[in-house]
């Protein structure tokens, strides 16, 4: 009977040698080693043998089963290696074919710059205060120390509404009065806010000027706010916004709602202050107007200017965005051409 085992052994190993794929391997295993396979069938014949042959035959079939299992594993390993080798050898693709595009979205550049501003100011304790776009003349001008016929009203071309008392805010500064009145506790509490928002001016729309633009205004009120604090705070902003060693220049200027007033220039971050077309070869870029809150404005906000002081500043995020990205035309901002928006 060991002859039968020997025949099956030769036959199975022969067949195994001929397998080349994992599918064939699986077929081979079920034929020889499966539940209803050939080796199993030999086990089934044990009962029909004479008792004295059974043990030896059983051992023979067991040995055959072990041998075939081992051979199978070896063969399986070999085929796996061959398949892998072949895949590595021949499975090359054209990596220069274009990618499948993923659907991306994005934030408007104005939003991006505003967020940058807001996070820097938040780190310094300035929280966002939102105010009206449509404002009362009083808040936009008179309470900010710009009475009717004040020469500085000419600096701003205003959109007026059919209600002569109401206009579109020309700057975010009216929010100063509203913030002081709302948060100041009748002139008894300190304030630190930024006022971001859309502003409007009746101008010719050109590559450099828009009828609608955003501003970020800042306001700090306290019992002990100094002009040196204003300089320190703005310089800190410039370091975080532009670069850690950004040089800042302060120039005397005039805004009706601050006194003393100053313009803030930062060393041109495009040429490093060497002078280029963008900074008009001066090495400086103007980034903010600022000053100590005018006593009249403090009074109008409910504070006693002999006890309280404050500073305020205003910045134009579009301008900074334009400088940073080399945007030549301010009309791109609200033009919403997706070819522009997709570049951010």
């Amino acid at each position: 009977m060991s002859q039968t085992v020997e025949v099956l052994r030769n036959q199975a190993l022969d067949a195994l040698q001929k397998t080349t794929t994992s599918d064939e391997l699986v077929q081979w295993r079920s034929r020889y080693l499966g539940r209803k396979g050939a080796v199993g069938a030999l086990f089934g014949t044990i009962g029909k043998l004479p008792a004295e042959e059974r043990a030896a035959f059983g051992q023979g079939v067991n040995a055959l089963q072990s041998e075939l299992r081992k051979a199978f594993e070896e063969r399986e390993q070999l085929i796996r290696e061959q398949v892998l080798a072949q895949d590595l050898e021949e499975g090359e693709i054209d990596i220069t074919l274009p990618a499948y595009p993923r659907q991306m979205g994005g934030l408007h550049p104005a939003t991006r710059t505003h967020r940058e501003f807001q996070s820097i100011w938040a780190e310094m304790g300035f929280q966002v205060y939102q105010s009206h776009d449509v404002e009362e003349d009083d808040f936009n001008f008179t309470l900010l120390n710009l009475p009717p016929h004040h020469p500085a009203r000419d600096m701003q071309d205003t959109f007026y509404t059919t209600n002569p008392r109401v206009l579109l805010r020309t700057h975010t500064s009216p929010g100063q009065i509203r913030a002081m009145r709302e948060l100041g506790g009748g002139g008894s509490k300190p304030i630190r806010v930024i006022l971001p928002g859309m502003c409007y001016r009746q101008e010719q729309v050109t590559a450099r000027s828009e009828i609608q633009f955003t501003q970020v205004e800042g306001l700090a009120i306290g019992r002990n706010i100094r002009m040196s604090d204003l300089k320190g705070t703005i310089s800190e902003f410039a370091k975080r916004m532009f670069k850690a060693d950004a040089k800042v220049r302060y120039r005397a200027s005039y805004f009706p709602f601050t006194e003393p007033s100053m313009e803030v220039d930062v060393e041109c971050f495009l040429c490093g202050g060497e002078g280029c077309r963008v900074c008009k070869y001066t090495g400086w870029l103007e980034i903010a107007g600022s000053g100590m809150v005018h006593p009249t404005v403090l009074r109008n906000g409910g504070y006693d200017p002999s006890l309280w002081s404050g500073f305020a500043f205003g910045m134009g995020p579009e301008r900074i965005t334009m400088l940073k990205h080399g945007i030549q035309d301010i009309r791109y901002f609200w033009g919403n051409d997706l070819r522009f928006l997709k570049q951010f």
Partner: peptide, 17 residues
């Protein structure tokens, strides 16, 4: 204006909302 120093606000911090 360059003679004015740069300082960090020492004033009371308003409550954050």
């Amino acid at each position: 204006y360059d003679r004015i120093p740069e300082t960090i606000m020492a004033d009371e911090m308003p409550p954050q909302r």
